[in-house]
Computed example of a mutant assay.
Amino acid sequence: MYHAANPISPPVILGGRRLPLVGRARMYVCGITPYDTTHLGHASTFVWADVAARVLRHAGVTVEVCRNVTDVDDVLTSAARRAGSPYDSFAAVQQFYFDHDMAALGVQRVDHEPRAHNHIDEVIALTQALLDADRAYEHDGAVYFDGERIPAQAGLAPDAARALLAEYGDDPDDPAKRTPWDVVLWSPSNAGEPAWPSPWSSGRPGWHVECAAMAMTTFGPSLDLHTGGADLRFPHHAYESAMAEAVTGVRPFARTWLHIGIVRVNGTKMSKSTGNLVFTADLLRDHPAAALRLLLIGRPWSQDWDYSPTDLDAAATRLDRLHTATGRPSSSPSAETAATRALLDDLDVVTALDIAEQEGGRTARTILAILGLT
């Protein structure tokens, strides 16, 4: 078993890569856009990020976690307008509900929680740096990032990249763009929209540059671990990384990634647009929080999966078995070592839990404590 006092970090594999860590691990988690309460897709991402941090800390690694809040976003502004509320007040209320859900699920408090509206100056500085590097251009008060090479770097065919850009609001048919693959760094604001002064217009930042600015402000030019939902891989993470790398010259922006598998309902991705959201708070009214946490992490982290109420009942039943196992006589030290090593091998929670349930005793107690399932 590895203890936090151990000065030598054991081998760690994350995101399919061996990740030597010296000093501290800088972990950036793509946070919420606070326009709705927490659904299972959100919860899965943030619980897995919490598990990664817990496992690294148990291994003796000093972990700093930054989880941003995207509180400047056109989707949020539209939701606030429908609710008849100022966007910032609306975001604060939704953030309160989110924090309550995270606490209930045992997600530990993060070290840094930057909010986009507090980092407008950094967004402007990054945008200007991209202009100076000839990786961006201005058009009628808007500034666009030159993204022509990004789809190919992400391994996407043009049609697939175009569809994803359109899906996430980066209109590839915007006539102001030089190429369909360019994305907004700064947009002029209309009346009633959030706006800040800039060298180009009174406006607001784009989504991707917000994350790049917040991550760089917190951790500098690179990260050890970047986590987020698999649906953020493109365009968000691809462009965020490209913007940071274009300015700093440091590559890769993130040494490794955890793109958490998508949660579906009846085969369809859980999302507000499809109307199939399952909210965390609703489930917590009738089920133990630890059972829901176990449901979320009881599979490989990158695996897409379908939510079913019967699976939550099964998770509650297994949680009871695991807790019962902790009361059995202590198992062999080798079993405990095997279980903790499974967690260090790309967060193999499935194997670690199987060993814990079979061996019981101290092994079960250790693994449940690491995973936040006590």
Rank of each mutant, 00 (worst) to 15 (best):
S9M: 06
V12R: 00
G16W: 08
L21V: 15
R26T: 03
C30F: 01
G31R: 09
T33G: 14
L40R: 06
W48K: 07
V55I: 14
L56Q: 02
V61M: 02
T70E: 03
D71T: 06
D73H: 11
D73I: 11
D74I: 05
L76H: 06
D88N: 11
A91E: 06
Q95W: 13
L105F: 05
V107A: 01
E113S: 12
E122F: 11
T127K: 04
Q128G: 15
L130H: 12
D132H: 14
A133P: 08
A133L: 06
A136M: 03
Y137T: 01
G141H: 06
Y144G: 00
G147Q: 08
G147H: 07
R149S: 15
I150L: 12
A157S: 13
D173L: 10
D173T: 11
D182S: 12
S187M: 14
P188A: 01
S189C: 09
N190A: 11
N190R: 12
G192S: 10
P199R: 08
P205N: 04
T217W: 14
F219L: 09
P221C: 10
H226V: 02
T227E: 11
H236A: 03
H237I: 07
M243G: 09
G249F: 11
V250Y: 12
R251G: 04
V265N: 02
M270G: 05
K272T: 04
G275S: 06
V278M: 08
D286M: 09
A289S: 14
A291N: 01
L294C: 10
G298Y: 09
G298Q: 15
W305Q: 13
D306N: 10
Y307M: 03
A314M: 07
A314T: 13
L319A: 08
H323V: 13
R328Q: 06
P333F: 10
E336P: 00
R341K: 15
A342V: 12
L347P: 01
D354N: 08
D354L: 03
I355S: 09
Q358C: 14
